[in-house]
C-alpha cells in the first residue's frame, strides 16, 4: 500500500489512471453497444466527439472558450480541422503553459487516442483539414530534388536552407525542423500553426508537400549526410567564422607559442 501511495505522485500516474479509466469506459461501451456496423461507426464517432469535448473542457476551454469559439486568450477553433489539433497537441505546443509570443514545442501529455478524440471534437465544430494518411506524408514516396526546390520557394525564408530554423519579429521564431515527425510537417504546412502561414492543397498540392517532407528527411533526419564533415549546426557563415577564429586561428596561435618558446635548458636551477 505504501508503495502505491508513493507512486501516486509519479508523473505518469495520471496517465495510468486515465488509461484505466479509458479502458473501462471502452469496455463498458463495448458491452452495451448496439451491434449494427454502420451504426457502430457513427456512434463511435459521436462518442469520440463526446469524449473529446470532455477533454476540451478540461484542457482547452479556458482559452478557446467552452464551445471552441475563442476568447481574448486564444483564437477560435471553428474550422481549424483535426489536423491542426493533432499537430498542436501531439507536439506539446497546446495546451499552452503560459501566454507568450509563441507556444514552444514541449513534451506531449496526451495519448494518441485522446488527441484523436479531441481532434474529432474540434473537427465537429466546423469543416477543416483532416489528419493526413500515412501514404500522404511518407518521405519514401517523395521526390527529394523537387522537394528541395519547393522548400526553397516556400519554406527556407523562415526555416533556413535545411530547416534549422530562424528568427521572426519580436522574439518569435521559425523552429528547427530536424527530426520532426513527417506527419507533423504535413499538418503544419496544411494548417499553418500560430504565425506560420498555411499552404492549402490548392496552393501546394499533396504531392508537393510529400516532396518537401522527402527533402527534409534527406537533409535533416538522423541519417542526414554532411559529406564535407561536421556541419557546425548548418547555420552558415556565422558559425563558420566563429569556428575559423576559435579553432583555426586559435590552434595556429598555440603553435606559434610552441615554436617561439625557449627550449628546455640543461641547468634547471
Amino acid at each position: 500500500m505504501k508503495k502505491l501511495s508513493a507512486r501516486r505522485r509519479h508523473p505518469l500516474a495520471a496517465l495510468v489512471v486515465l488509461l484505466i479509466a479509458l479502458a473501462a469506459t471502452g469496455g463498458l461501451y463495448a458491452t452495451f453497444a448496439p451491434t449494427g456496423k454502420a451504426q457502430a461507426e457513427e456512434t463511435s464517432q459521436s462518442l469520440a466527439v463526446e469524449e473529446g469535448q470532455k477533454i476540451f473542457r478540461v484542457g482547452c476551454a479556458s482559452c478557446h472558450g467552452t464551445g471552441g469559439q475563442g476568447s481574448s486568450d486564444g483564437p477560435s477553433l471553428v474550422g481549424v480541422g483535426a489536423a491542426a489539433v493533432d499537430f498542436q497537441v501531439s507536439t506539446g505546443r497546446m495546451p499552452l503553459q503560459q501566454q507568450g509570443v509563441q507556444a514552444p514545442k514541449k513534451p506531449n501529455i496526451y495519448t494518441q487516442k485522446e488527441i484523436d478524440q479531441l481532434a474529432a471534437y474540434v473537427a465537429s465544430l466546423g469543416p477543416g483539414p483532416a489528419v493526413p494518411e500515412e501514404s500522404q506524408y511518407d518521405p519514401a514516396g517523395g521526390d527529394v530534388a523537387r522537394g528541395g526546390d519547393l522548400f526553397r520557394t516556400n519554406c527556407a525564408q523562415c526555416h533556413n536552407f535545411t530547416g534549422k530554423g530562424g528568427a521572426l519579429t519580436d522574439g518569435k521564431y521559425a523552429p528547427n525542423i530536424d527530426g520532426v515527425d513527417p506527419k507533423h510537417m504535413y499538418e503544419a504546412m496544411q494548417t499553418g500553426p500560430q504565425n506560420m502561414p498555411s499552404f492549402p492543397d490548392k496552393l501546394l498540392t499533396t504531392t508537393d508537400k510529400q516532396d518537401i517532407i522527402a527533402y527534409l528527411d534527406e537533409v535533416g533526419g538522423d541519417e542526414a549526410e554532411s559529406p564535407g564533415g561536421f556541419s557546425l549546426g548548418g547555420l552558415g557563415p556565422v558559425s563558420e567564422g566563429l569556428f575559423a577564429w576559435v579553432f583555426g586561428l586559435g590552434a595556429l596561435v598555440v603553435l606559434t607559442i610552441w615554436i617561439t618558446a625557449r627550449s628546455a635548458k640543461a641547468r634547471k636551477s
Binding site: 541519417e223 542526414a224 549526410e225 554532411s226 559529406p227 564535407g228 564533415g229 561536421f230 556541419s231
Partner: peptide
C-alpha cells in the same frame, strides 16, 4: 559515406 563519431555521416574520401 561513412559514419564517423562525432562528425556525422561524412564523405569517406574527403575525411
Amino acid at each position: 559515406i561513412v559514419y564517423i563519431f562525432p562528425l556525422g555521416h561524412v564523405s569517406a574520401l574527403n575525411f
